[in-house]
Protein backbone atom coordinates (compact mmCIF):
# COMPACT_ATOMS: atom_id res chain seq x y z
CA UNK A 1 0.00 0.00 0.00
CA UNK A 2 2.84 2.40 0.76
CA UNK A 3 4.49 1.48 -2.52
CA UNK A 4 7.51 -0.20 -0.99
CA UNK A 5 6.79 -3.67 -2.27
CA UNK A 6 5.89 -4.91 -5.72
CA UNK A 7 2.84 -7.18 -5.36
CA UNK A 8 2.41 -10.06 -7.79
CA UNK A 9 -1.29 -9.52 -8.27
CA UNK A 10 -4.11 -7.24 -7.27
CA UNK A 11 -5.16 -3.64 -7.38
CA UNK A 12 -4.77 -0.76 -4.96
CA UNK A 13 -6.84 2.35 -5.41
CA UNK A 14 -7.88 5.29 -3.28
CA UNK A 15 -11.12 6.72 -4.57
CA UNK A 16 -10.65 6.99 -8.30
CA UNK A 17 -6.88 7.18 -8.12
CA UNK A 18 -5.28 3.85 -9.02
CA UNK A 19 -1.98 3.30 -7.18
CA UNK A 20 -1.33 -0.20 -8.31
CA UNK A 21 -2.84 -2.55 -10.86
CA UNK A 22 -0.96 -5.73 -11.63
CA UNK A 23 -2.97 -6.43 -14.78
CA UNK A 24 -2.50 -3.00 -16.31
CA UNK A 25 1.06 -2.67 -15.03
CA UNK A 26 0.27 0.50 -13.08
CA UNK A 27 2.57 1.27 -10.17
CA UNK A 28 2.73 4.67 -8.56
CA UNK A 29 6.02 5.20 -6.68
CA UNK A 30 5.96 5.65 -2.90
CA UNK A 31 6.76 9.35 -3.09
CA UNK A 32 3.68 10.02 -5.23
CA UNK A 33 1.10 8.11 -3.20
CA UNK A 34 0.66 10.34 -0.17
CA UNK A 35 0.47 7.56 2.37
CA UNK A 36 1.34 8.51 5.92
CA UNK A 37 3.46 5.46 6.75
CA UNK A 38 4.55 4.69 10.31
CA UNK A 39 6.88 1.68 10.39
CA UNK A 40 7.26 -0.49 13.45
CA UNK A 41 9.93 1.61 15.17
CA UNK A 42 8.58 4.85 13.64
CA UNK A 43 11.60 5.41 11.36
CA UNK A 44 12.49 8.86 12.69
CA UNK A 45 15.64 10.30 11.10
CA UNK A 46 18.29 10.17 13.85
CA UNK A 47 20.38 12.91 12.26
CA UNK A 48 17.57 15.46 12.38
CA UNK A 49 15.82 17.20 15.24
CA UNK A 50 12.11 16.70 15.84
CA UNK A 51 11.26 19.83 13.89
CA UNK A 52 13.74 18.77 11.20
CA UNK A 53 11.94 15.45 10.83
CA UNK A 54 8.60 17.21 10.42
CA UNK A 55 10.11 19.77 8.06
CA UNK A 56 11.44 16.97 5.85
CA UNK A 57 7.90 15.82 5.08
CA UNK A 58 6.27 19.21 4.54
CA UNK A 59 9.30 21.10 3.22
CA UNK A 60 8.54 23.86 5.72
CA UNK A 61 8.36 24.28 9.50
CA UNK A 62 5.09 23.16 11.02
CA UNK A 63 4.91 24.60 14.54
CA UNK A 64 1.14 24.11 14.37
CA UNK A 65 1.58 20.33 14.06
CA UNK A 66 4.10 20.21 16.91
CA UNK A 67 1.64 22.22 18.98
CA UNK A 68 -1.25 19.92 18.12
CA UNK A 69 0.65 16.81 19.20
CA UNK A 70 2.03 18.48 22.33
CA UNK A 71 5.66 18.19 21.26
CA UNK A 72 6.59 21.87 20.77
CA UNK A 73 8.97 21.69 23.73
CA UNK A 74 10.79 18.82 21.97
CA UNK A 75 11.31 20.68 18.68
CA UNK A 76 15.10 20.76 19.07
CA UNK A 77 15.43 17.26 20.58
CA UNK A 78 16.87 14.30 18.69
CA UNK A 79 14.73 11.18 18.23
CA UNK A 80 17.06 9.09 20.37
CA UNK A 81 16.27 11.35 23.38
CA UNK A 82 12.53 10.68 23.17
CA UNK A 83 10.30 8.13 24.88
CA UNK A 84 8.23 5.62 22.90
CA UNK A 85 5.07 7.72 23.14
CA UNK A 86 6.88 10.91 22.13
CA UNK A 87 8.41 9.15 19.14
CA UNK A 88 4.99 8.03 18.04
CA UNK A 89 3.67 11.57 18.24
CA UNK A 90 6.63 12.93 16.26
CA UNK A 91 6.14 10.22 13.64
CA UNK A 92 2.43 11.06 13.38
CA UNK A 93 3.15 14.79 13.14
CA UNK A 94 5.70 14.07 10.40
CA UNK A 95 3.30 11.82 8.52
CA UNK A 96 0.60 14.51 8.69
CA UNK A 97 2.99 17.20 7.46
CA UNK A 98 2.96 15.24 4.23
CA UNK A 99 -0.81 15.83 4.10
CA UNK A 100 -1.53 12.15 3.55
CA UNK A 101 -4.81 10.81 2.28
CA UNK A 102 -4.48 7.64 4.30
CA UNK A 103 -2.44 6.54 7.31
CA UNK A 104 -0.65 3.21 7.44
CA UNK A 105 0.55 2.02 10.85
CA UNK A 106 2.71 -1.10 10.85
CA UNK A 107 2.66 -2.81 14.26
CA UNK A 108 2.93 0.51 16.10
CA UNK A 109 3.41 -1.14 19.52
CA UNK A 110 5.79 -3.91 18.52
CA UNK A 111 8.87 -2.28 20.01
CA UNK A 112 7.29 -1.23 23.32
CA UNK A 113 7.11 -2.85 26.73
CA UNK A 114 3.71 -3.80 28.17
CA UNK A 115 3.13 -0.66 30.26
CA UNK A 116 4.24 1.81 27.59
CA UNK A 117 2.26 -0.20 25.08
CA UNK A 118 -1.02 0.43 26.84
CA UNK A 119 -0.32 4.15 27.30
CA UNK A 120 0.80 4.62 23.72
CA UNK A 121 -2.19 2.70 22.42
CA UNK A 122 -4.71 4.74 24.40
CA UNK A 123 -2.96 7.91 23.25
CA UNK A 124 -3.06 6.75 19.66
CA UNK A 125 -6.77 5.95 19.96
CA UNK A 126 -7.42 9.55 21.05
CA UNK A 127 -5.23 11.03 18.30
CA UNK A 128 -6.77 8.91 15.56
CA UNK A 129 -10.27 9.81 16.71
CA UNK A 130 -9.38 13.50 16.21
CA UNK A 131 -7.73 13.04 12.83
CA UNK A 132 -10.67 11.73 10.85
CA UNK A 133 -8.30 10.19 8.33
CA UNK A 134 -8.71 6.70 6.91
CA UNK A 135 -6.21 4.61 8.81
CA UNK A 136 -4.96 1.10 8.23
CA UNK A 137 -3.24 -0.55 11.18
CA UNK A 138 -1.39 -3.85 11.04
CA UNK A 139 -1.20 -5.81 14.29
CA UNK A 140 -0.97 -9.33 15.67
CA UNK A 141 -2.95 -8.50 18.79
CA UNK A 142 -6.73 -8.53 18.60
CA UNK A 143 -6.83 -6.37 21.71
CA UNK A 144 -5.07 -3.54 19.84
CA UNK A 145 -7.48 -3.85 16.96
CA UNK A 146 -10.43 -3.93 19.36
CA UNK A 147 -9.34 -0.67 21.02
CA UNK A 148 -8.36 1.19 17.86
CA UNK A 149 -10.36 -0.08 14.92
CA UNK A 150 -13.84 0.42 13.53
CA UNK A 151 -13.37 -2.52 11.21
CA UNK A 152 -11.06 -5.47 11.57
CA UNK A 153 -9.92 -7.65 8.72
CA UNK A 154 -8.38 -10.98 9.65
CA UNK A 155 -5.68 -12.39 7.40
CA UNK A 156 -4.90 -16.09 7.64
CA UNK A 157 -2.05 -17.37 5.50
CA UNK A 158 -2.41 -14.43 3.15
CA UNK A 159 -6.17 -14.68 2.72
CA UNK A 160 -8.78 -12.33 4.14
CA UNK A 161 -11.01 -14.66 6.17
CA UNK A 162 -13.30 -12.14 7.82
CA UNK A 163 -13.90 -8.43 7.94
CA UNK A 164 -16.23 -6.72 10.39
CA UNK A 165 -16.45 -4.60 13.50
CA UNK A 166 -14.58 -5.88 16.56
CA UNK A 167 -17.94 -6.74 18.12
CA UNK A 168 -18.99 -8.73 15.07
CA UNK A 169 -15.76 -10.68 15.19
CA UNK A 170 -16.34 -11.46 18.86
CA UNK A 171 -20.01 -12.33 18.36
CA UNK A 172 -19.77 -14.38 15.19
CA UNK A 173 -16.25 -15.43 14.25
CA UNK A 174 -16.10 -16.89 10.75
CA UNK A 175 -13.59 -19.59 11.58
CA UNK A 176 -11.90 -21.30 14.53
CA UNK A 177 -8.79 -19.23 13.71
CA UNK A 178 -10.70 -15.94 14.06
CA UNK A 179 -12.34 -17.18 17.26
CA UNK A 180 -8.96 -18.14 18.71
CA UNK A 181 -7.53 -14.74 17.69
CA UNK A 182 -10.25 -12.95 19.66
CA UNK A 183 -9.30 -15.04 22.70
CA UNK A 184 -12.32 -17.37 22.66
CA UNK A 185 -12.33 -20.93 23.96
CA UNK A 186 -12.47 -23.07 20.82
CA UNK A 187 -13.58 -26.66 21.52
CA UNK A 188 -14.30 -29.61 19.29
CA UNK A 189 -17.46 -31.62 19.73
CA UNK A 190 -20.38 -33.42 18.11
CA UNK A 191 -23.69 -31.62 17.74
CA UNK A 192 -27.07 -33.35 18.08
CA UNK A 193 -30.13 -31.33 17.05
CA UNK A 194 -32.41 -30.59 19.98
CA UNK A 195 -35.47 -28.41 19.47
CA UNK A 196 -34.52 -25.22 17.66
CA UNK A 197 -30.88 -25.55 18.79
CA UNK A 198 -28.54 -28.40 19.51
CA UNK A 199 -26.70 -30.18 22.24
CA UNK A 200 -22.97 -30.37 21.67
CA UNK A 201 -21.08 -33.26 23.23
CA UNK A 202 -17.57 -31.96 23.77
CA UNK A 203 -14.32 -33.75 23.14
CA UNK A 204 -13.00 -34.78 26.54
CA UNK A 205 -16.48 -35.10 28.06
CA UNK A 206 -19.39 -32.89 29.06
CA UNK A 207 -21.87 -31.01 26.95
CA UNK A 208 -23.14 -27.52 26.21
CA UNK A 209 -26.40 -26.35 24.72
CA UNK A 210 -26.21 -24.08 21.69
CA UNK A 211 -28.97 -21.95 20.24
CA UNK A 212 -27.70 -22.83 16.77
CA UNK A 213 -29.09 -25.91 15.12
CA UNK A 214 -26.29 -28.21 13.96
CA UNK A 215 -25.70 -31.87 13.31
CA UNK A 216 -22.43 -33.77 13.38
CA UNK A 217 -18.85 -32.81 14.23
CA UNK A 218 -18.40 -29.11 14.94
CA UNK A 219 -16.18 -26.64 16.68
CA UNK A 220 -17.72 -24.20 19.10
CA UNK A 221 -16.45 -20.89 20.45
CA UNK A 222 -17.25 -19.35 23.83
CA UNK A 223 -15.64 -16.14 25.09
CA UNK A 224 -14.01 -16.42 28.53
CA UNK A 225 -16.42 -13.92 30.09
CA UNK A 226 -19.46 -15.79 28.80
CA UNK A 227 -18.85 -18.78 31.05
CA UNK A 228 -20.30 -18.99 34.52
CA UNK A 229 -18.88 -21.20 37.22
CA UNK A 230 -21.50 -23.32 39.01
CA UNK A 231 -21.73 -26.27 41.36
CA UNK A 232 -20.17 -29.25 39.55
CA UNK A 233 -22.91 -31.58 40.86
CA UNK A 234 -25.54 -29.53 39.05
CA UNK A 235 -23.60 -29.22 35.80
CA UNK A 236 -23.31 -31.23 32.61
CA UNK A 237 -19.80 -29.83 32.05
CA UNK A 238 -17.03 -29.97 34.64
CA UNK A 239 -13.34 -29.17 34.67
CA UNK A 240 -10.46 -28.72 37.12
CA UNK A 241 -8.95 -25.34 38.01
CA UNK A 242 -5.23 -25.01 37.27
CA UNK A 243 -4.64 -21.34 38.14
CA UNK A 244 -6.48 -18.28 39.40
CA UNK A 245 -5.05 -14.82 38.94
CA UNK A 246 -6.44 -11.32 39.04
CA UNK A 247 -6.28 -9.21 35.88
CA UNK A 248 -7.58 -5.87 34.71
CA UNK A 249 -11.14 -6.99 34.19
CA UNK A 250 -11.56 -9.24 37.20
CA UNK A 251 -10.24 -12.71 37.80
CA UNK A 252 -8.89 -15.04 35.15
CA UNK A 253 -9.48 -18.70 35.94
CA UNK A 254 -7.58 -21.24 33.91
CA UNK A 255 -8.99 -24.75 33.74
CA UNK A 256 -7.42 -27.73 32.00
CA UNK A 257 -9.60 -27.19 28.89
CA UNK A 258 -11.06 -23.70 29.26
CA UNK A 259 -10.28 -20.15 30.27
CA UNK A 260 -12.94 -18.31 32.23
CA UNK A 261 -13.07 -14.60 32.99
CA UNK A 262 -14.96 -13.75 36.18
CA UNK A 263 -16.08 -10.16 36.72
CA UNK A 264 -14.92 -8.05 39.67
CA UNK A 265 -16.80 -8.69 42.87
CA UNK A 266 -17.64 -12.30 42.16
CA UNK A 267 -18.35 -13.72 45.61
CA UNK A 268 -17.14 -17.27 45.15
CA UNK A 269 -13.58 -17.61 43.99
CA UNK A 270 -12.30 -21.06 43.09
CA UNK A 271 -8.96 -22.42 44.22
CA UNK A 272 -6.49 -24.39 42.07
CA UNK A 273 -7.37 -28.11 41.80
CA UNK A 274 -11.04 -27.40 42.62
CA UNK A 275 -13.50 -29.14 40.35
CA UNK A 276 -16.03 -26.67 39.00
CA UNK A 277 -19.08 -26.78 36.75
CA UNK A 278 -19.40 -24.52 33.71
CA UNK A 279 -22.44 -22.99 32.13
CA UNK A 280 -22.91 -20.69 29.15
CA UNK A 281 -26.07 -19.17 27.70
CA UNK A 282 -27.10 -21.13 24.55
CA UNK A 283 -26.87 -17.99 22.35
CA UNK A 284 -23.23 -17.56 23.41
CA UNK A 285 -22.28 -21.10 22.42
CA UNK A 286 -21.42 -20.32 18.81
CA UNK A 287 -21.15 -23.15 16.37
CA UNK A 288 -18.33 -22.53 13.90
CA UNK A 289 -18.08 -24.10 10.48
CA UNK A 290 -18.65 -27.84 10.72
CA UNK A 291 -15.46 -29.87 10.79
CA UNK A 292 -14.66 -31.63 7.59
CA UNK A 293 -13.03 -34.74 9.02
CA UNK A 294 -16.42 -36.22 10.00
CA UNK A 295 -15.22 -37.85 13.20
CA UNK A 296 -15.71 -36.86 16.79
CA UNK A 297 -12.38 -38.26 17.89
Amino acid sequence: MAGLERPQAGRIALGREVWFDAQRGTRLSAERRRVGYLPQDYGLFPHMTVSGNVRFAGRRDRPDLLERFGISHLAQARPQQLSGGERQRVALARALAREPRVLLLDEPFGALDAITRQQVRDELADLLAELELPTMLVTHAFEDAGVLADHVGVLDEGRLVQIGTPTELLRSPASPMVAALTGANVIEGVAVPAGSGSTVRLKGGGELVSATRADGPVEIAVQPWEFELIDPRASSLTDTVTSVRPDRRGVLVRLTRFTVQLPHGESTRPEPSDTVGLRAAPENVRVLAARADGSAS
Binding site: A2, G3, L4, S29, A30, E31, R33, R34, V35, G36, Y37, P39, Q40, D41, G43, F45, F56, A57, R94, A95, A97, R98
Partner: peptide
Protein backbone atom coordinates in the same frame (compact mmCIF):
# COMPACT_ATOMS: atom_id res chain seq x y z
CA UNK B 1 21.83 2.35 6.73
CA UNK B 2 18.49 1.10 8.05
CA UNK B 3 16.32 0.37 4.99
CA UNK B 4 13.23 1.62 6.86
CA UNK B 5 14.57 5.18 6.98
CA UNK B 6 14.96 5.33 3.20
CA UNK B 7 11.52 3.75 2.74
CA UNK B 8 9.95 6.30 5.07
CA UNK B 9 11.72 9.13 3.25
CA UNK B 10 10.08 7.86 0.06
CA UNK B 11 6.59 7.78 1.55
CA UNK B 12 7.18 11.31 2.84
CA UNK B 13 7.56 12.45 -0.73
CA UNK B 14 11.34 12.47 -1.15
CA UNK B 15 12.55 11.44 -4.60
Amino acid sequence: IDETLLDVAGTLGAG
